[in-house]
């Protein structure tokens, strides 16, 4: 999601899948590694970009980043960049992985391997990449492996996507209702945000147009703004899966300036949306953790 990253992910936090599912995913990865003659997969994820880590372990880092090491045989290990022993106890609550160690121990943990694949290199911090490359030979193909394994969402994942989409729609609906009842733009957006969080979403992002027609931007401490029309966008996440909603409240808004950044954000411009954004909801698009659309719904309210 190309939105402003909050300092901490602070919505409902729980283990996204069972220990059995973790075992099944790890087993799938291990079969692939064995078939390719690779010693381990190193899956990176930070609080913003976490697809490889989240697909393998279910973990979405609330702060900083973490690395999962899945050996071709044996137990999966997590290495966290959080600073203290007390923080590592928190990390143990975010995934069913029994071994959690500080990121400083990653190089030592990899020393028993010779050749590894790495997924998430593009987002990985240089110092972590240095630690990996200093310990083992890094082979290409880690990201492609995760992409291939995650291409077809399970029913559980589709349920998460449906939930995220519903929560995004709920947030947009609450915002529109608040506008209709006379609330200012910021208050209306905050009510939508609250609705998504109370619906159990782990992460909620809001973009809006403070002056209809300008590119959408994050809320930044504004307290009282009246905007008619109000063009806004919600992205909400649960278990690592996102739902989105773009909506307009009040009068019609001029395109394409308002939508250009939204399209850039990965939200497709729906057929039938041409020159003007009239009041209502325009799209709900579900994405999996790798950004691949799983379902797409067009709704004009």
């Amino acid at each position: 999601m190309l939105t402003l990253h909050p300092v901490v992910l602070r919505g409902r936090t729980e283990l996204p899948f069972s220990a059995d599912e973790l075992s099944a995913r790890v087993a799938t990865v291990q079969r692939e590694l064995g078939g390719a003659g690779v010693d381990a997969l190193v899956a990176f994820g930070d609080a913003r970009s976490y697809a490889p880590l989240a697909w393998v372990t279910g973990m979405v880092p609330m702060l900083k980043w973490a690395v999962a090491v899945v050996p071709a045989s044996g137990e999966t290990e997590l290495y966290s960049a959080l600073p203290g022993a007390r923080d590592l106890r928190r990390v143990r609550t975010l995934a069913h992985v029994g071994s959690v160690a500080p990121i400083g121990q990653l190089a030592g943990g990899l020393a028993r391997f010779r050749r590894v694949m790495v997924a998430g290199l593009r987002s990985m911090r240089a110092r972590t990449e240095d630690a990996i490359r200093g310990a083992v030979q890094v082979l290409d193909g880690g990201d492609q492996l995760i992409d291939r394994l995650s291409a077809v969402p399970s029913e559980r994942e589709r349920e998460l996507l449906r939930g995220a989409s519903e929560a995004a729609r709920l947030a947009a609906s609450e915002t529109v209702s608040a506008c209709q009842s006379g609330a200012g733009a910021v208050e209306a957006l905050l009510r939508g945000d609250l609705a998504a969080r109370e619906a159990g979403m782990h992460d909620v992002r809001v973009l809006w147009s403070p002056d209809a027609g300008l590119p959408l931007r994050p809320l930044a401490g504004e307290t009282a703004v009246d905007r008619d029309p109000l063009v806004f966008y919600f992205a909400v996440e649960t278990g690592g899966y996102w739902g989105e909603a773009l909506a307009c409240a009040g009068g019609p808004a001029t395109l394409p300036a308002a939508l250009a950044p939204v399209a850039r954000l990965g939200l497709s411009v729906q057929e039938g949306v041409e020159d003007q954004l009239t009041p209502g909801f325009y799209s709900r698009r579900s994405l999996d953790a790798s950004g691949v659309p799983c379902s797409q719904t067009i709704e004009v309210g």
Binding site: R12, T13, E14, R86, V186, D193
Partner: peptide
């Protein structure tokens, strides 16, 4: 939401609830 309604532009928040005081963490169900 209340913090941001009052004008904060971001918010770092951790919590815990338990019969005996526990370390703070992300909110759960």
């Amino acid at each position: 939401v209340d913090v941001r309604r009052r004008g904060a532009d971001d918010h770092f928040v951790l919590c815990s609830s338990s019969p005996i005081g526990d370390n703070v963490r992300a909110p759960t169900a």
